[in-house]
Design a protein around this nucleic acid. Structure first.
Lengths: 104, 104
DNA sequence: AAGACGGTTCGAAAATAGTCGAACCATCTT
DNA sequence: AAGATGGTTCGACTATTTTCGAACCGTCTT
């Protein structure tokens, strides 16, 4: 029985470029990633994106399953952060340049 | 009347990050881009991808409309090249790191 | 134990994207 | 002008993605 706190995410060497690019090709998800990049870590609820939470949850799921974001439970909420080191090792420079591009 | 040689592509400052990432998130298109990156320029017909030419043509269209690839007629065929300089100016380091990531 | 709060999961509907064959357009060759 | 070659366009179909409400799960508080 999987609990909702079990977070599905690929191992570092299983992170797929296609999936990463697809995950980041959505403007909403990009916005999420930029905010996490700026703040270091952000809880799911801290995004004031006008959209039902089920939809937002879906976007987080895509980000997790692509290997871009990792989430851990912190008391009541889920804290999200970027898997910067793992991504940097697997695809050097990629995340940084995408974040820079998205910040323009 | 638009002729089939009229190539639709965005102006440099109209290139959208989302569209670029989406274009490159498809493995077939990534393969195309990698081959162009390696060879400098490649005609559409030079890709031995086992797929009807209408489908291949569609992928080239996506690549053009995203601003990643430009095509010009050269006699009988269409020569494709990357819009490296324009992309570099708009999103510094982006294309390079994606190509590096895709080459692994 | 009962709320309240933060998120996920589960359908199902709507929108978007990919694939393909057939017909067509543009250029070069004969 | 007639083929041949290289690509595009069109329409239809399929597959994937996005979106949403409703129900649910996990944690904290009371």
């Amino acid at each position: 029985m999987t609990k909702c706190t079990d977070i599905l995410q690929p191992l570092p060497n299983e992170i797929s470029l296609s999936k990463v690019l697809h995950a980041l090709s959505d403007p909403v998800r990009m916005e999420i990633v930029l905010k996490i990049a700026k703040a270091g870590q952000v809880a799911c609820g801290a995004f004031d994106i006008p959209m039902p939470k089920s939809t937002l949850s879906h976007h987080f799921k895509v980000l997790r399953e692509s290997g871009v974001v990792t989430s851990r439970r912190e008391g009541n909420e889920l804290m999200n952060s970027l898997r910067s080191e793992e991504l940097e090792e697997r695809f050097p420079g990629l995340l940084k340049s995408i974040i820079a591009a998205g910040s323009r």
